[in-house]
Computed example of a mutant assay.
Amino acid sequence: MVRWKDIACTAAASVALALPAVAQELTPVTFGTNWLPQAEHGGYYQALADGTYEACGLDVTIVPGGPQVNNRALLLAGRIDFHMGGNLLQAFNAVAEGIPLKVVAAHFQKEPQVLMTHPGQGLDTFESLKDIELFIGENGYQTFYQWLIDAHGFTPGQRQPYTFNPAPFLADKRSGQQGYVTSEPFAIERAGGFTPNIFLLADHGFDTYSTTVEAMDETIETMPDAVRCFVEGSALGWVNYLYGDPSAGNALILKENPDMTQAQLDYSIAKLKEYGIVDSADALELGIGAMTEERIRSFHDKMVAAGVAPEDIELSDMHTLEFVNDGVGLDRKAELTQ
């Protein structure tokens, strides 16, 4: 199986042409995402569409998530090979429960979680959010909001239940609402006719990795070349999606998710780049997908202090750096952005 760092040609099409003429036997693998196809999955669809995965030896099937789909359960049952995790909290809990899986890459350096407020209301600073009602969903309340309480002095009484209907936020100009920087602000702009103030939690200390790739220990041990190909191929897919022509990936997304629009895709890609969601911090020097021990420990310590992560776990049991930090895609990015 081909390794990207050993290939001189960086564009996926060039890589494919550089391979021997003899047909390559591909290894079939399945990747389960955590929601319906969208720009937040763009690098994976790009790598599938432009032949990047195939060039290093994989026949990849992407299984979309959704409200009635639990791809993480399919991973645990051995029915898919890779799963898109949300942030590191799930992996922390997996270790505590004795589940033999590891995070093998983190394709988002920042979680896209934000708080939003109305403009022109004096709610223009992170500190000002402590004085208003905030519409927060149950999962958010049990996770990042507990960190906001512990680290920043927010209070439980501020929280109002969020049912993923923006109407209460739109009606109350002195309120705030959770969202993803790539999604909810776009909806607010169209429904409310204004651009909300955006506060990315990652820029205020919520330093989890996001859009992780999880694999069972058995997969890592028995199919290391396939794991490496998927991790590195995905990194290159993200480079091509963000800095090259994303039309091939977008075409697949639009085909698989008829409710998606080109306008939403364009907005999301712009926000991924503007806020450094995929490509920032260590990824700038180590390549997209980068992780470090220090960063993982930092987030774990914060979550333990907030009471939302198990304390007595061995962090090496929930991740491996074997397949990341090799600078894959940096040359391709330089080529596309020069």
Rank of each mutant, 00 (worst) to 15 (best):
C9E: 10
C9M: 08
C9F: 13
A11D: 14
A11Q: 07
A11R: 09
A11K: 06
A12F: 00
A12K: 03
A13W: 05
A13M: 08
A13K: 10
A13E: 07
A13G: 12
A13V: 09
A13Q: 07
S14E: 14
S14G: 13
S14A: 09
S14I: 03
S14L: 11
S14N: 08
S14Q: 14
V15K: 00
V15Y: 04
A16Y: 00
A16D: 02
L17Y: 10
L17K: 10
A18H: 09
A18N: 02
A18V: 08
A18S: 13
A18W: 13
A18L: 03
A18Q: 11
L19Y: 03
L19H: 09
L19S: 13
L19D: 07
L19W: 07
P20R: 10
P20I: 11
P20K: 08
A21W: 08
V22F: 14
Q24T: 15
Q24M: 15
Q24R: 15
Q24F: 13
E25I: 11
E25A: 13
E25H: 11
E25D: 08
E25N: 12
L26K: 11
L26N: 03
L26E: 10
L26C: 12
L26I: 04
T27Q: 09
T27H: 13
T27D: 04
P28V: 09
P28N: 11
P28T: 13
P28A: 06
P28R: 11
V29M: 06
V29P: 00
T30Y: 06
T30C: 12
T30S: 15
G32H: 05
G32L: 04
T33V: 12
T33I: 13
N34K: 12
N34R: 03
N34F: 13
L36K: 14
L36W: 02
L36A: 12
L36I: 08
P37R: 01
P37G: 01
A39H: 00
A39C: 15
A39M: 10
E40N: 15
E40G: 09
E40C: 07
E40P: 01
H41Q: 15
H41E: 06
G42F: 02
G42A: 07
G42E: 04
G42L: 13
G42P: 01
G43R: 01
G43W: 01
G43M: 02
G43P: 06
Y44P: 04
Y44S: 11
Y45I: 09
Y45W: 05
Y45M: 04
Y45D: 05
Y45Q: 06
Y45A: 07
Q46W: 04
Q46I: 06
A47H: 05
A47T: 09
A47E: 06
L48G: 00
L48N: 03
L48K: 05
A49M: 11
D50T: 09
G51Q: 03
G51C: 07
G51H: 03
T52E: 12
T52M: 12
T52R: 07
